[in-house]
Design a protein around this nucleic acid. Structure first.
Length: 484
RNA sequence: GGUCCCAUCGUCUAGCGGUUAGGACAUCGGCCUCUCACGCCGGUAACGCGGGUUCGAUUCCCGCUGGGAUCGCCA
């Protein structure tokens, strides 16, 4: 392989054994950002060689999740590309070729030992010395016969020396080889294992840099050996520190939401999620909030940290909230596109005009689109859903006359804009020697069904005269009836 | 246990020999106020320990301690 002057090529290679994991998203994001920044290509490859757990349905979910996130790929299983196919199970012939090369050069050999036998040996050793490390004894290493039995392909690992590589984030890493063992490259059913599949694909797909989680760091030395045995150019490597749970352990299903789809269903905008994720292990001075275009300008491996971190949902919420609030990060149009489905999911018909006018009031109130939809619920129904505590506290008989009175005032209010309403209402209240704080809550509950909402006059203007008067009158009746 | 990796407020982090160790989230006060938010002002809070190197270490080196990853015919 010649030193390429070509553009960088990076990949994200999930295995369709489950949904898209939040940690996977972080890996995908860093790869994607690097590709965008460097004018390179981001490739999506499906590593489906685990026949037991891989499903087409999972692959679909992963692709959908990637699309939702906006992490687009230049080559992949759905769009194809010059180095396809992009599903490992469709590349079996390619691995076959490379394996033959390895066998021919004696870098790999057939092993007829059975898994059962090896497992038994492993168990026996463990029983004898729990701390001992089982290593393949090399039984078939120099075997020359070819019995008619199932076999796996093993890599002939060197027993001395070291392998050193320069990691883009961790710097120089050196591993002694005497601890390596002859790892299985191909199963007895002919399907390759991770290390072989990934290396062959990365070679044939022209991958120039492999960026992945730090949990793969241990695989790098044997993979480098494979590149060398195949006479291929070793790509660059960049390992990313791990995302841990609150307790400092590897993130798992039990730690709350780890699937991207859960975040989508929570009404979290993808840009916000990505922003949180990028700050995990990468920083740009004191800047916390980034748009995606901004990131594609600023991202680099040099600013990546090495320390593992703990996933913090509070911080995630805060970062997401910034995206929900700031118009330069998310236009009103984008916000509307985002919330609408969540309002509709409540069985409500969205009045576009009303939604547009409500936006300035709610962008800074809903921490997620789900929350915003909940807060705006009353705008899209004829009768608000009453919070029990709120109505019990404020819609009491003593307030009934006031509500009736206020309804009358609104019915005759000359100008239904927030400013004019406030002006007139304040005067009206003063005439009756009432104070705003005495009337505001009952009126608020009457209009919205809740004890918390945006400013009363903003709400009133949004609802419009007819709805306001109707709701107030109805609330007055409710208040009166609550005596019994 | 072997191998690899890491180490600044509770959390994410800035710092790349000399700083009152900065920011953000969280937290605690306060302001604003018709409620809730938003916003604003302020406080508490960190360099794991021990050796070096140096005029001077959070920063460089070594050890320790602590934490994590991984040891499959999973990826």
């Amino acid at each position: 392989m010649t030193e390429g002057t070509s553009r960088p090529r990076v990949r994200f290679a999930p295995s369709p054994t489950g949904y898209l994991h939040i940690g996977g998203v972080r890996t995908a994001l860093f790869n994607w950002l690097y590709a965008k920044k460097s004018g390179g290509a981001f490739i999506l490859r499906i590593e489906d060689t685990d026949q037991e757990r891989s499903t087409p349905e999972n692959e679909r979910i992963i692709l959908d999740s990637m699309r939702w996130l906006g992490l687009d790929w230049a080559e992949g299983p759905d769009v194809g590309g010059p180095h396809g196919p992009y599903r490992q199970m469709e590349r079996l012939g390619i691995y076959q070729e490379f394996v033959e090369k390895l066998i021919k050069s004696k870098a790999a050999y057939r092993c007829y030992c059975t898994k059962e036998d090896l497992d038994a040996q492993r168990e026996a050793l463990k029983k004898q010395d729990p701390k001992a490390q089982f290593r393949y004894p090399g039984t078939c290493r120099d075997r020359t016969d070819h019995p008619d039995l199932p076999f796996v392909i093993r890599f002939r690992a060197p027993s001395s020396g070291v392998v050193t590589y320069r990691d883009k984030v961790f710097g120089e890493v050196t591993t002694p080889l005497n601890t390596l063992q002859d790892a299985v490259l191909v199963r007895k059913d002919g399907i390759p294992l991770y290390n072989l599949g990934a290396v062959v694909d990365d070679i044939t797909m022209g991958i120039t840099l492999v960026a992945r989680g730090r949990d793969h760091m241990i695989n790098t030395p044997p993979q480098i050996l494979l590149y060398e045995a195949l006479g291929a150019k070793v790509p660059e490597f960049a390992h990313l520190p791990m995302m841990l749970n609150q307790k400092g352990e590897k993130l798992s299903k039990r730690d709350g939401a780890v699937s991207v789809t859960e975040y989508r269903d929570m009404g979290i905008p993808p840009a916000g999620l990505l922003n949180y994720l990028v700050r995990f292990g990468w920083s740009y001075g004191d800047q916390e909030i980034f748009s995606l275009p901004d990131l594609t300008q600023k991202f680099d491996w040099e600013r990546c940290g090495k320390g593992d971190g703990k996933f913090d949902t509070k911080k995630l919420a805060a970062v997401v909230f910034e995206h929900l609030k700031q118009k330069d990060l998310m236009s009103d149009e984008a916000y509307i596109t985002g919330v609408r489905p969540f309002i509709e999911a409540r069985g409500l018909r969205v009045d576009d005009d009303k939604l547009v006018r409500a936006l300035p009031l709610y962008r800074e109130r809903g921490q997620t689109w789900v929350e915003a939809a909940d807060l705006m619920d009353y705008l899209f129904r004829d009768t608000p859903v009453f919070d029990e505590k709120a109505s019990k506290k404020f819609l009491v008989p003593a307030k009934a006359p006031i509500l009736e009175d206020v309804a009358g005032w609104f019915a005759a209010a000359p100008d239904f804009t927030p400013a004019k309403l406030e002006e007139g209402f304040t005067a009206f209240i003063a005439e009756r020697s009432l104070e705003m704080k005495d009337v505001a809550q009952p009126v608020r509950v009457a209009l919205t069904g809740r004890s918390a909402s945006p400013g009363l006059f903003d709400v009133a203007a949004l609802l419009g005269r007819d709805a306001v008067v109707e709701r107030l009158k109805r609330a007055a009746k409710t208040a009166e009836a609550s005596a019994t």
